[in-house]
Design a protein around this nucleic acid. Sequence first.
DNA 1: CACTTGACCTGTCCGC
DNA 2: TGCGGACAGGTCAAGT
Length: 299
Amino acid sequence: METIKIGLKHLLPGQVVSSVTFDSPKSFPNSPSDVKHFLIGAKVLLVKRRAKVLLIELSSKYSLAIHLKMTGQLVFINHMTKSKSKLKTIKTTERFGAGHPNNSLIGKLPDKSTRVNIRFESGANLYFNDQRKFGWMKLLPTAEIPNTDFFKKLGPEPLATSFTASDFADRMNKRPNTSIKAALLDQSVIAGVGNIYSDESLWGAKIHPATLVRKLSASKLETLFHELQYVLKLSINKGGSTDKNYLDAQGRRGSYLRFARVFRRDGKPCPRCGVIIIKIRIAGRGTHICPHCQKEPRT
DNA sequence: CACTTGACCTGTCCGC
DNA sequence: TGCGGACAGGTCAAGT
């Protein structure tokens, strides 16, 4: 989501919404009246992110809040005409934003998983596609967003400059009797960490994901904190973790998973010791570990 | 209260 | 090829 934000923040501000189409209230719960009053005619001011939610601030004092969940995509298509281009030869369609893993989507949206289509006066479109309908896009008063249930319970951003290793340990220690993996995935402890980065950071810190938080020493937690920051920064630099559905902000696939050391690498050798990586189930999630580097905790 | 499990959806993959 | 079941990057509600 951070890579999507990085791309869209250079593309959306200044765009004025001209029309919107949407289907089910599950993907877009607002009424046509909300759309008419707070979205149509509004200009995009800012693009931000909090946890896994993208925020598009509008001149109407409302914002679009977007959560992609497992299979959501945001695809920005700027339909440009040859007549408007004097400086260079350009493609008739340029696509930006997060979206489909290959270029076959160009010119083919909307499709059957398109939940919302926002059209701008410039002729550009922002498509919200979501195969599984877990994700959502909602129009909310900008000032109210921090007071929503979802935002109120979020923990700190792991890459915030003010967030230290001891802050991290303090947060984790609020969940002493759960597995470290469940604690990492709990958005009220730390915001924004999902299954990929929890597995990757635990491998980096040589911690078995089933280890109870209270069994971890302060120095282990500090190592985990640094490994978590490392994998998050690396992934942002590589354009995110595109696998099936996500694209990075410039319309390219993110490449982080090529650098992943355990995630979806079961059956392959651990890059540190060569022992075959296995996949297990922890905290109800598929979990990838090196059984040699990440020893099972004694109970 | 802390913690875990199932449900929400659709598509794909794997074994029979 | 067809069919059934398990599984998928996240979050809730309901359960223990």
